[in-house]
């Protein structure tokens, strides 16, 4: 649980298109790392390469290493399905399984892993929903479909689903961009609580959000149209937002572009 990532010389391609160029980055455990940068700079692509989800797109491939506690998740012996079982992911739009009940949504990952004991599943469902600050709102309707909840509740349901399997790392791809400010606040509070137990990497377009929730911030940028995205700078969040070492970072966070 709560492992660290070491990304070494990571290059990502979609077919012939070079999407991201030589990223080197360390993600410490029990820590929130934020990826910021303009649209198309490759931050989501890097995030998706951390649990091998980018491979779902045809023609996608990577060069370089992504070490999870020293083990390369791209080693030829590693099954991407196993990687995704140990690294949770929360998406931009809440995506609970609409035909499944709230409870079944939460334990979907465990069921895929072969857990059948009903008592155990119920325990995990409750613990995960409590962990996602959703238990009190849904405890009376665990058998109702997950699609009936509000957007913010659905997103917390997806977080509960992701943490139910006790992942090594939790990846969040702009988890609040489809939510209203109140729900966003609820998720941000939740992230702060979750980092006690999990390593979290979050992509966000909202710089205030990065400043509020993260310990470490990585700024990605595009050098030009058609050029690969690059990691410009990574540092403590406080330093990035007060005294960045690169001019491009300063221009971006002060709103001069992007």
């Amino acid at each position: 649980m709560a492992k660290r990532f070491d990304i070494k010389d990571l290059n990502i391609y979609y077919g012939k298109f070079h999407a991201v160029s030589s990223v080197n980055l360390a993600v410490p455990p029990r820590n929130v790392t934020a990826f910021i940068g303009p649209s198309g700079c490759g931050k989501s692509t890097v995030l998706r390469s951390l649990n091998r989800m980018h491979e779902v797109a045809p023609g996608a491939r990577v060069e370089g290493k992504v070490l999870l506690d020293g083990e390369d998740i791209y080693a030829s012996t590693v099954d991407p399905v196993e990687v995704r079982r140990t690294i949770g992911m929360v998406f931009q739009r809440p995506n609970p399984f609409p035909t499944m009940s709230i409870r079944d949504n939460v334990v979907a990952g465990l069921k895929l892993a072969g857990v059948k004991n009903k008592k155990k599943l119920d325990e995990v469902a409750e613990r995960s929903l409590r962990g996602a600050n959703l238990w009190n709102e849904v405890k009376d309707r665990l058998d109702r479909p997950g699609g009936g909840l509000s957007g913010g509740q659905q997103q917390r349901l997806c977080i509960a689903r992701a943490i139910a399997v006790q992942p090594d790392v939790l990846l969040m791809d702009e988890p609040c961009s489809a939510l209203d400010p109140i729900s966003t606040l609820a998720i941000e509070d939740l992230i702060t609580e979750l980092k006690k137990d999990f390593t979290i990497v979050i992509v966000t377009h909202n710089m205030q959000q990065a400043a509020r929730v993260s310990d470490q911030t990585a700024f990605f940028n595009l050098l030009g149209v058609g050029q690969p995205g690059q990691l410009i700078e990574v540092d403590d969040t406080e330093k990035i937002f007060s005294n960045p070492s690169q001019k491009a970072t300063e221009d971006y966070i002060s709103g001069r572009f992007g």
């Binding site: 196993e82 990687v83 949770g88």
Partner: peptide, 20 residues
Amino acid sequence: MQIEGALALGATRWEMIRTT
């Protein structure tokens, strides 16, 4: 996004088809 949700949970292709 349903399909991605299932795959991100560690579903194999058949499990993804069954759940989504």
